[in-house]
């Protein structure tokens, strides 16, 4: 196994995923297999090769910094699990 239980828990914490115990055990096995598989890349000779930033090697287009969209907060918040007075509600963050 290239990854152990603790490493998998650490990744899950970084990814903000709560795993059930059986999911955790299965991920140790499957993630290890995936990591072993992508390790094939280490054999490639990439000396001096520029990492690809865009499939067509073009630069990002820029636009004028002007307002183009109207404010539709109420409509967008129809999908929110919990809102009040236009604000998204989450559990208390500051004691």
């Amino acid at each position: 196994m290239s990854l152990d239980k603790d490493q998998v828990q650490q990744i899950a914490t970084l990814a903000r995923l709560k795993l059930k115990p059986e999911e955790h055990a299965e991920l140790v096995d499957k993630l290890s297999r995936i990591v072993d598989f992508v390790d094939h890349l280490s054999a490639a000779d990439t000396e001096g090769v520029i990492p690809m930033a865009h499939p067509l090697d073009v630069a990002q287009r820029l636009r004028q910094d002007v307002v183009t969209e109207p404010n539709e907060r109420d409509r967008y918040q129809e999908n929110a699990p919990s809102v009040t007075e236009g604000l998204y509600l989450v559990p208390k963050v500051i004691e």
């Binding site: 280490s42 490639a44 090769v49 990492p51 690809m52 930033a53």
Partner: peptide, 9 residues
């Protein structure tokens, strides 16, 4: 980074 290099190749 390695994968993005191989992607170029």
């Amino acid at each position: 980074l390695k994968a993005q290099q191989v992607r170029h190749l």
